[in-house]
Simulated assay, not measured.
Amino acid sequence: MTKIAIIGDVGGCADQLAAAIRPLVDDEDTIVIQVGDLVDRGPDSAGVLALVRERLDNAPHRWVQLIGNHEAQYLGGTAFWPHQLDPDDADLLHGWWLKERLRVAAAVRTADGEEFLVTHAGLTVEAWQDLGAPVTAGTAADLLNTRPDDLLWHFRGPLWAEAGPHVYQSWLQPDRPVPFGQIHGHSTIVNYRHGTWLCDERVRQRTTVAWAARHTFTRMGGSRFIAVDPKHGTTGAPTWSPLILDNATLLT
């Protein structure tokens, strides 16, 4: 068992990433999972990639890097961001993908026995069914890491699905068991800047918010769905923190 720190979307904000990992990198008992969207929007995508490259080169067993939709532009997906990365940085991402340094999913078990699938955007019911309806987070992660093309690039797949209307709504059916919890970035169900909600009342009633950390916790059946995208924007969130799971186990 170890400490697992899950870092939400970085979006080109290198200073915010550096501050988040500074207290973590010297702790040999800490594993970092970053949920993707390292690049775009913020001022220093190249600096973000340099920080991650240092971790992947020097402590690969302690850094799990997931792919987000912004990385997917350079790995077979359609380019959509108006300011594309420099060719060297795009080649770096492509190399990570080929060498399996970029993954689609991870799975963790907490000290209390909760299992979570960790992806960039979350897994809808439809995507879960397309995987064969796996009953454990570890199996779901293993299946996603085979990179099923039809699912990976779909607009409601684990790189693109929106939390409120796609992921959470799909799991709200009362007669559908929720096999495991989920941790994701990409989108959230609140507007942190204005303190308002971006979801319907059924989801809101099941949710608590850590406003300073910029995490939401939504109860689905006996499981929890946790959103960790801090919404850095172009300059970085004023307050935020990684999600820390003490005495947890990395299952994948």
Rank of each mutant, 00 (worst) to 15 (best):
P43I: 02
L51K: 11
A46T: 08
D57W: 00
P60A: 04
R22A: 15
L38K: 09
V35S: 04
A18I: 10
N58Y: 00
P23K: 12
A46S: 10
I21F: 10
D40N: 15
L17V: 08
W63L: 10
A20T: 03
W63H: 11
I33Y: 10
N58T: 11
E28Y: 04
R62P: 11
V32K: 14
P43M: 07
L24T: 02
D26P: 00
D57M: 02
I31D: 05
R41V: 04
D26Q: 05
L24A: 10
L24D: 03
R41T: 07
D40W: 08
A46G: 01
V25M: 09
D29M: 08
L24E: 03
R55V: 10
H61Q: 13
D29V: 11
A50W: 02
D44E: 09
V52P: 06
V32C: 13
D44Y: 05
R22F: 06
D15Y: 06
D27K: 14
V25W: 01
V35R: 08
R55C: 12
V32S: 15
T30S: 03
A59V: 06
Q16F: 00
L24S: 04
D15L: 06
V32W: 00
P23G: 12
P60F: 11
G42Q: 13
G47E: 07
L49V: 05
D27I: 09
G47Y: 13
D37E: 08
Q34K: 05
L51H: 14
V52G: 02
V35I: 14
